[in-house]
Design a protein around this nucleic acid. Structure first.
Lengths: 249, 249
DNA sequence: TTACATTTGTTCAAAAATAATCATAAATAA
DNA sequence: TTATTTATGATTATTTTTGAACAAATGTAA
């Protein structure tokens, strides 16, 4: 592990976490603290980060990040598990819809070397897959800065022109009685558009979202065929969904 | 195993792994470490890789993936001047087309606090204006990873749905006799689409590009009304363009 | 503020990698 | 064929990198 590799890793960690301390970096990278300190000083001189006592912070940490990896996400592990499982469902040569949710975004790292086409309205997904094997198709239209995605009638219309083998979409709530629900009208519309234009739709949904209802109910449970979830889901809940004909991955 | 074969193998390994150390390369290729070192130095001199202590890394290993600011651009000053001048032509409330050229990209920093709408096919422009006052509209479609922009029939069609007050587009070559020319068909098509759907089109063109003809001529000089250029343009050339009815900024 | 712990800069030594030099083997030219 | 150049490998000296020790500086809590 030489300086260049450490530099790369340090900047990567800093990009994801905004800040890092010497001890963590040393154990993460597998070198001594004194070496990390030297590296940080060098990188600070190059203007690539800002040194603090005990570590460093990202140089432009007040600028919003592009990739929205929320490290503090309580369900990070579950989301990662779901993302990985979902990725394995994709076959070479397929056309895939990916929506703008954070769980869906996590699928990107498993897709980079796959020969597939991805149609998405998510800017983080676009960026993550830009320099990869994947051919990206972005749904144009007005950009929603908050969600880092294209939304609205033009984006919807754009998506509807494409047909995909599989759609991977997040949902904010799911219940047998109330079906699918979302926190915003925009996201619900996107979800339905993707679902309507894909042969198979996989709803990505961590176990905490089962039997919850959010702001807007937008689809009955009968329209759901496949759900990808994490292993923390209880057997009882799982059985209830299987009973109504849904496959759980 | 001669140098050419080793070179091929080294670059292959580097392409796959990002980095490699001397000892690994030596055992992988079946030669001594000193020979590998000599090879690496030669290849580093040829600019094919970057030497590190103990090995080498791929040349573009830690190159930022987005933001295509070419620091070594010989015309950086001219481009900056042009970008600033062009930005001042925009009024509050206007809808603007921005294409995917590097000069146009430089306009972004002057636009961030303006109350305008920008329609673009450029990913760097999208990112730069994402968290700003500007409402961004991205032309969707297949993404050209090389140009970091959306191109193709869908993107063109998308753009054509919008009408803008002003379009700002780069050109690779301009001449009285041959009109506008570009290095690629894709860019020429985008340029024309923007020009056709804007009330006024400003061609951004540094002084070195005057009276040059590139790969593809795509429009006559009579369709050009406004050019934004830098102060290094000669009075004679300037006068020739004024004589055919073009305004130079 | 003081007392304490943590972090840092400095110095030094060990280890690793490199450059320089020379010798040998292979390829090429005469 | 022999002479000459070129590529490779081995040896040694030098440089670079790394880690440890310790004093100085900084931050934190009472």
């Amino acid at each position: 592990m030489n300086f260049q590799l450490r530099k790369h890793k340090i900047l990567e960690i800093l990009a994801a976490n905004d800040s890092a301390d010497v001890a963590d970096l040393a154990s993460e990278i597998g070198t001594s603290e004194i070496t990390i300190r030297r590296d940080l000083n060098t990188l600070a001189n190059q203007g690539l980060l800002t040194r603090t006592h005990g570590g460093a912070i990202r140089n432009d940490f007040d600028k919003p990040k592009i990739a929205f990896f929320d490290k503090n996400d309580v369900n990070a592990d579950a989301k990662e598990e779901i993302a990985q499982k979902a990725s394995e469902l994709i076959k070479a040569g397929e056309v895939i819809f990916l929506d703008c949710g954070s769980t869906v975004f996590r699928m990107c790292k498993y897709l980079k070397n796959r020969k597939i086409k991805v149609v998405t309205n998510s800017i983080p997904v676009l960026l993550e897959l830009l320099n990869s094997e994947v051919q990206v198709n972005f749904a144009g239209g007005e950009i929603d800065a908050l969600r880092q995605a294209a939304h609205g009638p033009i984006a919807t219309e754009h998506l509807a022109r494409y047909k995909a083998e599989k759609a991977f979409v997040g949902v904010d709530g799911i219940s047998i009685a109330n079906g699918l629900s979302a926190n915003s009208e925009k996201e619900a519309e996107m979800t339905m558009t993707m679902a309507n234009n894909a042969k198979e739709t996989y709803f990505l949904c961590d176990s905490s979202k089962f039997e919850t209802v959010k702001y807007l109910s937008f689809s009955k449970i009968s329209s759901v065929k496949n759900i990808v979830t994490d292993k923390k889901i209880s057997i009882e809940v799982k059985q209830k969904y299987i009973d109504v004909g849904i496959s759980l991955f």
